[in-house]
Design a protein around this nucleic acid. Sequence first.
DNA 1: ACGCAAATTGTGAACGTTCACTTTTTTAGG
DNA 2: CCTAAAAAAGTGAACGTTCACAATTTGCGT
Lengths: 352, 352
Amino acid sequence: MANDSRKKLATMRDVASVAGVSHQTVSRVINNSPNVKLKVREKVQEAIDELGYVPNVAARRMGGNRSYLILAVNDRARTLDNWRVGRGNDWVDQMLFGGMMECEQNGFRLIFELVDTENPAATTQLARAVASLRPDGVILTPPHSENQDLADLLAANGTAFVRIGSSGKEDGINIAMDDHAAAKAATDCLLELGHKEIAFIAGSADYWASTARLDGYRAAMAQANTPILPHWEQPGDFTFESGALAAAKLFKSPDRPTAIVASNDEMAFAVLHEAAKYDIAVPGELSVISFDDTPGVRFSVPPLTAIRQPISAMAERASKELIKQDDKPLAGAQIVLPFELIVRNSTGPAPG
Amino acid sequence: MANDSRKKLATMRDVASVAGVSHQTVSRVINNSPNVKLKVREKVQEAIDELGYVPNVAARRMGGNRSYLILAVNDRARTLDNWRVGRGNDWVDQMLFGGMMECEQNGFRLIFELVDTENPAATTQLARAVASLRPDGVILTPPHSENQDLADLLAANGTAFVRIGSSGKEDGINIAMDDHAAAKAATDCLLELGHKEIAFIAGSADYWASTARLDGYRAAMAQANTPILPHWEQPGDFTFESGALAAAKLFKSPDRPTAIVASNDEMAFAVLHEAAKYDIAVPGELSVISFDDTPGVRFSVPPLTAIRQPISAMAERASKELIKQDDKPLAGAQIVLPFELIVRNSTGPAPG
DNA sequence: ACGCAAATTGTGAACGTTCACTTTTTTAGG
DNA sequence: CCTAAAAAAGTGAACGTTCACAATTTGCGT
């Protein structure tokens, strides 16, 4: 649909002539430049209000070197998959919230980009997006936050970026929650409830957090001098199916655990479903605790006790870092945001 | 974080000099202009590939009158509210899917904007967003799709727009599902299961669809010569709380219905929760059917039978309409997308 | 008052496209 | 082979900002 006849809107020069100043002075007012006399500033502001002038983002990008755009990069395959099967996308949804709110307050826009996981597709796609939009900053989410090629690409072309949910060993700014501590907290919670036979369903190895969570679980068990039977550590890949598979194995084993820590909600849901099949009462005979605390958790039966990953807070912070004018830190900076353990009804005292 | 030293990327003129043609010829190749010799086109394409050239969106906007941007406008209060309580946003999430996919294939970007519901805030916010981004098109979702001031604003400044979920009596392009037919189908489904006492929980009156759904319910009941007791038509506003309230009233009434049609999933969930409180078995003693089919439905207990609103299909179609170059239709066009009735386990034969 | 530095304001170019128009090349008809 | 029209390719301006720098005004110490 062509926009043949767009109404001509007021430009900076229009404002300038109404206010009787130069266009550059208007620019200074718009950008809160300090060297403008109060009286002039007021006069310009009046003209702006009168004409309903709003600066054009594209022109600002052309003139200066800022685009007022932040690019949020998510895993294409996983996101599309979630959408296609009618599942929600916690990352996209919550990032949109945190990031958008922060951007909005600073005159920025958040734009989503889905990028494939495997190189070279990933680097090509990101390069294209960056070249086309020239965003002021890029937010890399898992598993892209672990992809050094992407970071190198951005660094090479001078685009600021922040990694979310990455290990923190990397260069640049990294924002994450303490997954190790979170997994330990989850496990400790179960230990305190008297559980000894606690199993763990791991997440996809592509994600750094998966390892951190597994380690946290082990640390908690070790600290409590509680041995872990080998089959209690089940692999998973964050999907419902993998969770169901892991749960089935655990339930069929002779040493059935009385509690399970699942590396995300999706797999915890699968555990709940599987438990129902095997007629195992939750939380009577089995306690379940999960990671992420996605919206659907509220409606599960029973509602899941979960570690809340501060996705929107991380996106908000990432945007803030990208928006602020300061020079970026040369060395790697690690920002750790607090997690929360939300106790609901899927956890209870150990049976017996 | 300032981007002091962005690497200079290849421009159209760089490509032109490598290919030994004028910048305008490169532009023609980029835009698939018909009047370029095959040989020249290939030579240019080679240069593009060699330099990794990607056209700059901001510059395209400046030079021409297209921004390659589509603005998706959603209800600010409702969206923020959903996010704040940790609920997902079905509209945002699914629009992002349908709209983004369509935009991506055509080199467009979808940008989300949250706009207040009440004027004059709504018009001001939209006007600012449009002035700043100059999008090629705007997608208006409920309840903004019913706001004629917004449509007038866009029409006045020559920005194409599509309404989603609106009545179709409006000017311009309207995309919706047949809410009346959907509600009738849902009710018919229950009638066929032998239910006679069927209640309806309405949605917020701000939304045109609410009325259409209520009418569809009434039409189905009328057609089946099944009387509706006054208290079976409960008001609601799409929130969990309103759904719970309505359910409680229905359950406490002497003529307790054997089936309930809820105007959205959120309220249907509330019915489920309330039913559990009153020890009413679903679907044994009560059948529940809902609208929207949001992701969480999959995990409810029992999984909800629901009318699937084709949100992503609507967003996809809306984007398509906005992207295509054709002149916009002068008269109002109504595009009706099919709904789907997905039968799960919250519906069963009438008791007794 | 004078002069110099600092603060304020102004000027023109530049950003990378597309548009409107001109020029050159190709095609087709006789 | 010539000519006119159509097709292909080129030229320079324009879009609305910011940048870099120049010009002017203001403030202050003497």
